[in-house]
Amino acid sequence: MKRHESMASGSSGLSVAVLVSTGRHSLTGRPGRADQDARAVELALNVENSHIRLFHAGEPGEECREALRGYLGMGIDSISLIEQSADADVSAALEEILRESKPGLVLTGTQAEQGEGSGLLPYMLAESLGWSLIAGLVSIESIEGNQATILQALPRGQRRRLKVRLPAIATVDESAARARQSAFGPAQRGRIDTISHDSSTDEALAGLSIKAARVRPKRLKIVKSKSARDRFKAAAAKSEGGAGQVLSEVSAQEGAEAIFKLLQDENVLSI
């Protein structure tokens, strides 16, 4: 732990590792940066006085390299490509690499654009390394010593501020700042350093049957009654709340107070 603190806040700055995966365009399936991972790289690039390393564990190949070039084009000099078989469980390899490289902060997307995409990997790494885990990172506000103050994404565009002990692994939310444009020059010049590593086969993978996603329409109003007339009425009637409170012949002041109370109860007022 001690050593880590020195890594996290030493004079050489914070060491940030970004775990990147290969993305696929949602319409064409062409390889490229994975959107959330690219946002993670962007976040890392904006950490002041930091030292950034990018890791990818996977099957090396032309598509993989093409995708990784997308990250290099953001102005990254090199990416470490940890060679793994197509059916590998990459968590072991990544754990080992992280244990060795001892970053203060590990950033990665919330969910991969290929494969199972369970979003479990960062949790597994945090658990086995014993590091903090941050879910849904949107921005890093400050890093002081081995403490980072960050914003976490909540639904509906809301944010929560957290203070986290480093080292930490953070999953980056899709509402984090968008990644900078990937430029051709640095993408071509950047290095992809291949690191050979044993693969441990993900046995469970064989048990999954994976197909293209089906359309899943949102549920429409449920009218389950056995009575034909009830079903009929439920469909044909306009929506009415029914038992609402009606304040008539009250002063504007009283009305406002009633509304104010409701707003407070529902916790939508930020005061």
Partner: peptide, 16 residues
Amino acid sequence: NVIPNMSYPPEPFLHL
């Protein structure tokens, strides 16, 4: 119901 007039909600029978 079959030709819902203006008193009906929009697409009242879409769920069917």
